[in-house]
C-alpha cells in the first residue's frame, strides 16, 4: 500500500512532509507500548500509536519503522517533532481511533505483523 493510499484511507493529516507519497508500506503495527513495537521488528512498517512522546520516535528509529501515524487526533509534542524531522521520518495524524484505523487499513489490504 502506498503512503498516498494510507493518508487517504485514514483521512490523515501529514504532520511531517518529508516523504514521497509513492513510497510503499507493507505492514502495520498498532501499539501504545513501545517495548511491544521493539519485540516484533518490521522494517519499513507503519506504526499506529497514541503515544506522542519522544519515545515514539526513538522506538521507530530502533525498530526501523519509517512511518508513524498518531491516532485519535493526537499531535506530537514539539520535541517529538524535532526528533522525527532529524531522522527523516514520515509523521501522520488521524482523527480515527486505533480500532477504526486498523479496520480501514485492513479492508484496503494492508497486512499486520503477527507472523514475523
Amino acid at each position: 500500500m502506498t503512503l498516498r493510499e494510507i493518508i487517504e484511507t485514514l483521512q490523515a493529516k501529514v504532520v511531517l512532509d518529508n516523504h514521497d507519497e509513492r513510497m510503499v508500506v507493507e505492514r502495520a503495527r498498532a501499539s501504545d507500548l513501545m517495548s511491544d513495537v521493539l519485540t516484533r521488528v518490521n522494517p519499513g512498517a507503519l506504526l499506529l500509536t497514541g503515544l506522542t512522546t519522544p519515545q515514539s520516535i526513538y522506538t521507530a528509529e530502533m525498530a526501523d519503522v519509517t512511518v508513524v501515524c498518531y491516532v485519535r487526533g493526537k499531535r506530537p509534542q514539539e520535541e517529538t517533532l524535532r526528533l522525527a524531522e532529524e531522522r527523516g521520518l514520515v509523521l501522520l495524524s488521524t482523527d480515527l481511533p486505533m480500532y477504526e484505523s486498523c479496520g480501514r487499513l485492513y479492508k484496503k489490504g494492508l497486512k499486520g505483523g503477527t507472523e514475523t
Binding site: 507500548l33 511491544d36 519515545q55
Partner: peptide, 9 residues
C-alpha cells in the same frame, strides 16, 4: 502511561 514498564524490557 508512557508506553513502557509492561515487563518486556
Amino acid at each position: 502511561e508512557l508506553g513502557f514498564g509492561a515487563g518486556m524490557g
